[in-house]
Structure formats: C-alpha cells, structure tokens
C-alpha cells in the first residue's frame, strides 16, 4: 500500500489531490427493503485488518510529509439488489476477499424472507463510505 501511495505521489503535480475512497471499518448490514420500509436481517462480522493496514499506510505518508491531510467525509452507501442471485454474487466476492467465512445460511435466510415478502422487495447491503482528501505539498 505504501508503494502505491508513493507511486501516486510521483505522478501527481505539486498541489495535486490524492483521494482515498473506501468503505468505513464498519460491519455491513444486510436487509430487505420494500415500499413500507426496511428490515434488517443480519450484521456481517467481517474483519478489518486490511482497512487498518490501509489507515496505517496513509498515516505514515502524512507523518513523513509526503501528503497533507485536508479532510475526511463519511456518508451512507447502499448496494441494492433485485434478486438472490445478485446477492450471492456479491457474497461470493466478499468471501473470496477473505472478509468472512461461508454464509450459506444467510442466503437461505434471505430466500425465506423473500418468499414471504411483497413483490418488488429488494436486498440491501449498506456500509458507510469514507473519503479522505490528501494534498501533495
């Protein structure tokens, strides 16, 4: 990560901006949404080792004076899926990245929830995003 940040520093003009946009280290929430509201089904228990490593890399770059931290914004972000297949694609990717162990039971739980839900019910995965703004001196 530090190497990537040094590369970014190399290609940036003086006074250029480095924007670090990624999910906050907050457990993702899985639920269903329909016209009459949202129903939370599960809070994921993913690890945040990668996020903390990225935080440390960014901090080392600012501590050493390669970049100056200018701001941090946090905001909501939703991934809305129309089908269980869509969710399974997302979950498989999430598991492949080592975030969580198998969650086949969650797929079954969602399947049951969708079977009794109104037509048009969507699956929602939510996690806030963080945008860090850094400037090359």
């Amino acid at each position: 990560m530090v190497h990537a940040l040094h590369e970014a520093h190399r290609v940036l003009k003086p006074n250029g901006l480095l924007l670090d946009l990624r999910p906050a280290a907050v457990h993702r929430r899985v639920g269903t949404a329909q016209d009459d509201g949202y129903r939370l089904l599960w809070v994921m228990r993913e690890g945040f080792d990668d996020d903390r490593a990225a935080d440390r890399a960014v901090a080392s770059m600012t501590d050493e004076g390669w970049f100056k931290a200018e701001g941090l914004t946090r905001f909501a972000c939703y991934r809305i899926m129309d089908t269980l297949d869509d969710f399974q694609v997302w979950l498989a990717d999430f598991m492949n990245r080592g975030k969580v162990p198998s969650h086949d039971w969650l797929v079954q739980r969602l399947r049951r929830a969708l079977e009794v839900a109104a037509a048009g019910t969507r699956i929602v995965v939510s996690a806030p995003l963080v945008l860090r703004v850094l400037r090359k001196p």
């Binding site: 290609v11 250029g16 924007l19």
Partner: peptide
C-alpha cells in the same frame, strides 16, 4: 512524473 491533478483510490487501498 507530476502529470496528474488528481489520483483517486476507488475502494483500492
């Protein structure tokens, strides 16, 4: 070197 105004790490760090 020094050719870009902005670098965005989009969910990439």
């Amino acid at each position: 070197n020094e050719s870009l105004d902005v670098v965005v790490f989009a969910w990439a760090l």
